[in-house]
Computed example of a mutant assay.
Amino acid sequence: MSYDVYGPFLPLVMLITFLGIFVWVLLPQNKKSFDEAANLPFADDEQEADNNNSNEPAHDRREEK
């Protein structure tokens, strides 16, 4: 089997794959997981803000001599 046999079907396979991913992304049941994934970069910022609000002094990563 070579490209001559499967070649004409590759655009069809690519189109079906694209449409499948497109529908999967737009399904309402996936919205929650996509929203959580979109907010992952900000999760550390929230943890740092919570840590800064504690009674401990801020640590500037410098050692006192």
Rank of each mutant, 00 (worst) to 15 (best):
F9E: 13
R61E: 04
G20A: 04
D4Y: 06
N52F: 04
K31M: 03
Q47H: 07
R61Y: 08
G20E: 01
A49L: 11
L40A: 07
N53W: 10
H59I: 05
N30I: 00
A49R: 13
P57M: 00
E46C: 05
A43E: 14
M14P: 08
L10G: 11
I16V: 15
D4F: 03
D50G: 04
F42H: 06
L10H: 15
N51C: 01
P57L: 01
P8D: 11
R62S: 07
P57H: 02
S33D: 09
H59W: 09
Q29T: 12
P28A: 03
L10N: 14
D45S: 07
V23M: 02
M14C: 13
E36P: 00
L12E: 15
H59D: 12
V23C: 02
D50L: 10
Y3A: 08
L40E: 04
Y6T: 13
P41Y: 00
P11A: 08
V5P: 01
N51L: 10
A49P: 07
P57G: 00
F22Y: 15
D44F: 05
G7C: 03
V25R: 14
V23N: 03
N52S: 07
V13D: 14
N52K: 11
A38K: 12
F42G: 07
F22A: 14
E48A: 02
S54E: 11
L19Y: 01
N52H: 09
D45W: 04
S33V: 09
K31Y: 02
M14L: 15
F9V: 10
F18I: 11
E56N: 05
L40N: 05
L10K: 15
S54D: 12
L27T: 04
A49H: 05
D44Y: 04
N55E: 10
W24P: 01
A58G: 04
P28S: 01
